[in-house]
Amino acid sequence: MIITLILAFLKIGFLGFGGGYAMLSLIYAESAHLGLSAAQFADLNALDGLIPGPIAINSATYIGQLTAGFSGALAATLTVCVPSLVIVPLYLHFEHRIKNNWGLSAILRGIKPASAGLVLAVAVTLALTTIGGVDTLGQIAKAQLNWANLLVLVIVLLMDAKWHLNPVFSILIAGLIGGVWYYLV
């Protein structure tokens, strides 16, 4: 399991261009391979909002801990750090030759729009799971609407767009709606 984790996070690290949210689609894909459910991934994303630190580090710790306990958490977290530890000394060593390298920025120009599409896909998948109770677009006919969750999603989206609220508040409000709904409906 540890080896599988290390391979997964090497892939996430070296293909993870563009920072935390751009890496989330990779993290989602790998976490599914490692056996995590969409709900567990959604919980990870909520914890990312509550706990300080880079998203990739938080995700590695969470996924490692859920799949293989403390040693898994440690291995996954250290693995996701490998690209930085390799790239920084290499770059500083060959700085004069790499500077103004058009190749890297060209690759980024392709990957950044890709990550926008990929994150949207993860968002749609999570929305299907939480609001419809189905995991893929193909099952949408079987979906059963969860009104409380639809309400939460719309409220959080609107608040985020309007006031850029701290995720901690959004999560508190979501939890409150979920709790109250349970006793009212």
Binding site: A123, N146, L153, V156, S170, G179
Partner: peptide, 29 residues
């Protein structure tokens, strides 16, 4: 009640990702 709370937080989590996708799209598309 815990399941109900967690489930609502997952919906908020989906909302965060919609905002993140919008942020990425706005600057890169």
């Amino acid at each position: 009640v815990f399941l109900s709370i967690m489930s609502a937080i997952r919906a908020a989590s989906a909302a965060f990702l919609f905002s993140a996708a919008y942020g990425l799209a706005r600057y890169n598309l």
